[in-house]
């Protein structure tokens, strides 16, 4: 009963933002604007799905911000050389490769995911600037814009793409052995290990899939701006963590439904759109989003602390 109420809460927040905004500025509810909300939330949602796979395992991925920049550069370069589909594929693979490095460091070599992914963020930022000589790569084939800016009838392609990513991540997290293992590892790494779960391997693959999803988000972005930008969406990783936290998934790991991340991403997308509609400048928007993320993470940590019983004093492992 309480669980259901808790999972409803983020949707009520979206409704609240919509009602308040519409009361001040009725244009918010125009169908065109509502579609805008979805379109603008799409990239963040995909990044949030990626983040969810990592967070449930008790880890964090802070590389996404500069990784999408690197992905956009690689993707546009590949599209110019071998066509749009090759560009899309190269972008996803770049993300997966970065995820593999993160996964190896975190899973196999037990580097903290915070350190490993911040290092990856720095590396990807440098590499993105390096391969383009510090300037954007432009003029991919015209078809390259389809994924990020195209329409299927009235529905924007990025919205469809985000739904596809949701289905993929949902199945992986809730219907595949890998997702189950990630949840168990996040819940109690040691117990999972002693029950035969291959922790290092599972964490590795979790990061690989998360990286591929970030790659996909990067391709969507590159397609949307129709170029490779070495400084594309630097705050993406933090916004993704914020979306996961706002959705109510404990950042300590062990539990979480993918739909919560979807709700979290939609809250952030709705809020951003509301601020635009209400004529706040983009600087103000940035500040508000930063404040919301900090608030969400703080509330999340406080809540999950309260839910967990205080750590029991562990008897010495070799005591007897």
């Amino acid at each position: 009963m309480r669980r259901r109420e808790a999972s409803l809460a983020p949707w009520l927040v979206i409704l609240l933002i919509a009602v308040v905004t519409a009361a001040i500025e009725p244009r918010f509810l125009q169908p065109g604007n509502l579609v805008n909300v979805l379109r603008h939330s799409a990239v963040l949602a995909v990044a949030a799905f990626a983040q969810t796979l990592v967070v449930v395992a008790g880890e964090i991925d802070l590389a996404a911000g500069s990784l999408v920049a690197l992905v956009s550069m690689v993707s546009v370069l590949a599209a110019k050389a071998s066509g749009t589909l090759a560009g899309y594929a190269a972008g996803v693979l770049t993300g997966a490769a970065a995820g593999a490095v993160n996964g190896l460091l975190v899973g196999r070599f037990q580097v903290s995911s915070f350190i490993a992914t911040v290092a990856m963020m720095s590396y990807a930022y440098g590499l993105a600037a390096y391969i383009g000589g510090g300037v954007p790569v432009e003029f991919p084939p015209d078809t390259f814009g389809w994924l990020g800016a195209g329409y299927l009838g009235p529905v924007p392609v990025p919205v469809v793409a985000a739904l596809g990513a949701f289905a993929f991540a949902y199945v992986l997290l809730h219907r595949a052995a890998l997702g189950r293992k990630l949840l168990l590892i996040g819940g109690n790494r040691r117990a999972a290990q002693l029950s035969g779960v291959d922790v290092a391997r599972s964490v590795f693959w979790g990061f690989v899939v998360a990286g591929a999803l970030v790659g996909f988000a990067g391709v969507m972005l590159a397609s949307k701006v129709h170029s490779g930008q070495p400084n594309l969406y630097p705050t993406l990783a933090f916004e993704a963590v914020g979306a996961v936290a706002i959705g109510g998934i404990p950042l300590t790991g062990g539990s979480g439904r993918l739909v919560q991340s979807l709700a979290g991403a939609l809250i952030m997308g709705t809020l951003e759109n509301a601020l635009t509609v209400l004529n706040f400048t983009s600087q103000v928007q940035q500040m508000v989003m930063g404040a919301v993320i900090v608030f969400a993470v703080a509330a999340n940590v406080a809540l999950s602390r309260g839910l967990r019983r205080p750590a029991e004093a562990r008897p010495g492992a070799l005591g007897t």
Binding site: R180, L183, L194, G196, S255
Partner: peptide, 27 residues
């Protein structure tokens, strides 16, 4: 192996009982 440290090495507290049972036989 069943550890003396039940909270630390036994169950996964957030996971449902079913997942705690099947963890060793996921295949």
């Amino acid at each position: 192996f069943v550890s003396d440290d039940r909270a630390g090495e036994g169950v996964v507290p957030e996971a449902p009982v079913a997942h705690n049972v099947s963890v060793a036989v996921l295949p």
